[in-house]
Measured scan of single mutants.
Amino acid sequence: LSEQDFVSVFGITRGQFAALPGWKQLQMKKEKGLF
Score class of each variant (00 low, 15 high):
34 L>M: 13
35 F>K: 00
10 F>L: 05
16 Q>C: 04
6 F>C: 14
14 R>W: 05
11 G>C: 03
25 Q>S: 01
25 Q>F: 05
29 K>R: 12
10 F>R: 03
7 V>T: 10
27 Q>M: 07
1 L>V: 09
7 V>G: 06
7 V>P: 06
34 L>P: 13
17 F>D: 03
3 E>I: 09
18 A>Y: 12
3 E>H: 06
26 L>Q: 14
12 I>Y: 06
17 F>Q: 05
18 A>V: 08
23 W>Q: 08
12 I>Q: 00
23 W>I: 07
21 P>S: 08
30 K>W: 06
1 L>C: 07
6 F>L: 04
5 D>G: 09
17 F>E: 06
17 F>G: 05
25 Q>M: 03
24 K>Y: 01
6 F>S: 03
2 S>T: 07
10 F>Q: 02
17 F>V: 05
15 G>A: 15
4 Q>T: 08
14 R>L: 06
19 A>C: 08
7 V>S: 14
22 G>M: 11
10 F>T: 05
12 I>L: 11
31 E>Y: 01
21 P>C: 04
29 K>G: 07
28 M>V: 00
8 S>A: 14
5 D>C: 00
11 G>P: 01
7 V>E: 14
13 T>P: 08
10 F>H: 00
25 Q>W: 00
8 S>Y: 00
33 G>P: 15
6 F>N: 00
26 L>R: 12
2 S>R: 07
29 K>I: 08
7 V>H: 14
5 D>Y: 01
23 W>M: 11
19 A>K: 09
30 K>R: 13
29 K>F: 13
16 Q>Y: 07
21 P>F: 01
34 L>D: 15
18 A>D: 15
29 K>P: 03
25 Q>C: 00
27 Q>A: 10
19 A>R: 11
24 K>L: 09
9 V>S: 03
23 W>Y: 08
25 Q>E: 02
16 Q>G: 05
34 L>T: 15
12 I>R: 01
9 V>W: 01
25 Q>D: 01
2 S>V: 06
10 F>M: 06
19 A>I: 03
22 G>T: 13
15 G>Q: 14
5 D>A: 00
1 L>S: 10
10 F>P: 01
1 L>R: 10
26 L>E: 15
26 L>Y: 09
19 A>S: 12
22 G>C: 04
32 K>Y: 07
29 K>A: 09
5 D>K: 10
13 T>I: 03
8 S>C: 12
19 A>N: 12
34 L>A: 14
15 G>E: 15
31 E>T: 01
18 A>T: 10
26 L>G: 10
7 V>I: 12
2 S>H: 04
24 K>Q: 12
23 W>C: 08
34 L>G: 15
24 K>T: 04
12 I>N: 03
23 W>R: 08
13 T>F: 05
20 L>S: 06
21 P>K: 04
16 Q>H: 09
30 K>P: 04
9 V>E: 10
32 K>I: 02
34 L>S: 15
9 V>A: 08
33 G>A: 09
26 L>D: 13
24 K>C: 06
5 D>R: 09
27 Q>L: 07
16 Q>A: 09
6 F>G: 00
14 R>K: 15
30 K>M: 14
7 V>R: 10
23 W>E: 14
10 F>V: 06
21 P>M: 01
30 K>A: 14
1 L>G: 12
22 G>H: 14
9 V>C: 02
23 W>G: 08
31 E>C: 04
17 F>K: 03
10 F>Y: 13
35 F>N: 03
27 Q>R: 09
19 A>T: 07
4 Q>L: 13
34 L>H: 14
13 T>K: 06
10 F>N: 08
31 E>I: 04
19 A>Q: 05
23 W>K: 12
35 F>W: 10
18 A>M: 07
33 G>E: 12
33 G>R: 08
26 L>S: 14
5 D>H: 15
32 K>D: 01
20 L>R: 02
19 A>M: 09
34 L>W: 13
27 Q>K: 12
22 G>I: 09
2 S>K: 10
8 S>E: 14
25 Q>G: 02
28 M>G: 00
8 S>N: 06
8 S>Q: 10
32 K>T: 09
14 R>N: 02
25 Q>Y: 00
19 A>H: 10
17 F>M: 08
14 R>Q: 12
16 Q>W: 01
24 K>E: 10
14 R>C: 11
17 F>P: 01
20 L>A: 02
28 M>E: 00
21 P>N: 03
21 P>H: 02
3 E>T: 11
7 V>M: 07
22 G>F: 10
28 M>W: 01
25 Q>T: 05
3 E>G: 05
23 W>L: 08
6 F>E: 00
29 K>H: 11
5 D>T: 07
13 T>G: 05
28 M>K: 01
24 K>N: 04
13 T>Q: 00
3 E>F: 12
6 F>Y: 08
13 T>W: 01
9 V>L: 10
22 G>Q: 13
20 L>G: 04
7 V>C: 08
31 E>M: 04
24 K>M: 11
4 Q>F: 12
30 K>G: 09
21 P>E: 08
14 R>A: 10
2 S>M: 02
18 A>K: 15
14 R>Y: 12
2 S>G: 11
31 E>R: 03
29 K>T: 12
12 I>D: 04
21 P>Y: 01
22 G>A: 13
21 P>G: 06
24 K>G: 03
7 V>L: 14
19 A>Y: 04
12 I>H: 01
18 A>G: 11
6 F>W: 09
14 R>M: 12
24 K>I: 10
27 Q>W: 05
16 Q>K: 12
5 D>M: 06
26 L>A: 14
32 K>L: 12
12 I>A: 04
28 M>L: 03
8 S>R: 13
5 D>Q: 08
30 K>Q: 13
16 Q>F: 06
11 G>Q: 03
32 K>F: 03
8 S>V: 10
18 A>C: 11
32 K>S: 13
24 K>S: 06
29 K>V: 13
23 W>N: 06
8 S>M: 13
21 P>D: 02
13 T>C: 07
3 E>Q: 08
16 Q>L: 05
2 S>P: 02
3 E>P: 07
30 K>S: 11
12 I>F: 14
9 V>Q: 11
33 G>D: 15
12 I>P: 01
20 L>I: 00
1 L>A: 06
22 G>E: 14
25 Q>N: 04
17 F>S: 04
27 Q>I: 14
35 F>R: 14
24 K>F: 05
17 F>L: 03
20 L>K: 01
26 L>C: 02
27 Q>S: 09
4 Q>K: 13
15 G>C: 10
26 L>P: 00
25 Q>K: 06
4 Q>H: 07
31 E>P: 01
17 F>C: 04
13 T>R: 03
9 V>P: 01
23 W>V: 11
9 V>T: 10
9 V>Y: 10
11 G>W: 00
8 S>W: 04
15 G>M: 13
29 K>D: 05
6 F>V: 00
27 Q>C: 04
4 Q>I: 15
3 E>A: 07
3 E>R: 03
8 S>G: 12
18 A>I: 11
35 F>L: 15
1 L>N: 11
4 Q>C: 00
18 A>N: 15
26 L>W: 10
34 L>E: 15
